[in-house]
């Protein structure tokens, strides 16, 4: 779980750096999609995947309800 949190925090930070949002730069295009758009899409998918992994990790633990 700590690894997942670490990955989430790192991705959060990276999302607001030129690695994902380079200023005024739309290149390189990937299958016709500008850079920030497909990087943003990947980040969104990555967070949903992290959520899925947390869910799978927590599933083993007993529910508190």
């Amino acid at each position: 779980m700590k690894l997942l949190d670490f990955l989430a925090i790192c991705t959060f930070i990276v999302s607001f750096t030129p690695l994902v949002i380079p200023k005024g730069q739309s290149q390189p295009f990937f299958i016709g999609i500008p850079y920030t758009m497909w990087m943003g899409f990947l980040v969104s998918i990555f967070f949903v995947l992290l959520t899925l992994l947390v869910s799978l990790t927590q599933k083993g633990e007993k529910d508190a309800d």
Partner: peptide, 21 residues
């Protein structure tokens, strides 16, 4: 422009992680 994706979609995806944690 496409920065709106980061503004809402990326933020929403981050939110669901916080929600589950």
């Amino acid at each position: 422009g496409i920065g709106a994706w980061i503004f809402l979609a990326v933020s929403d995806a981050m939110m669901v992680y916080a929600l589950i944690r």
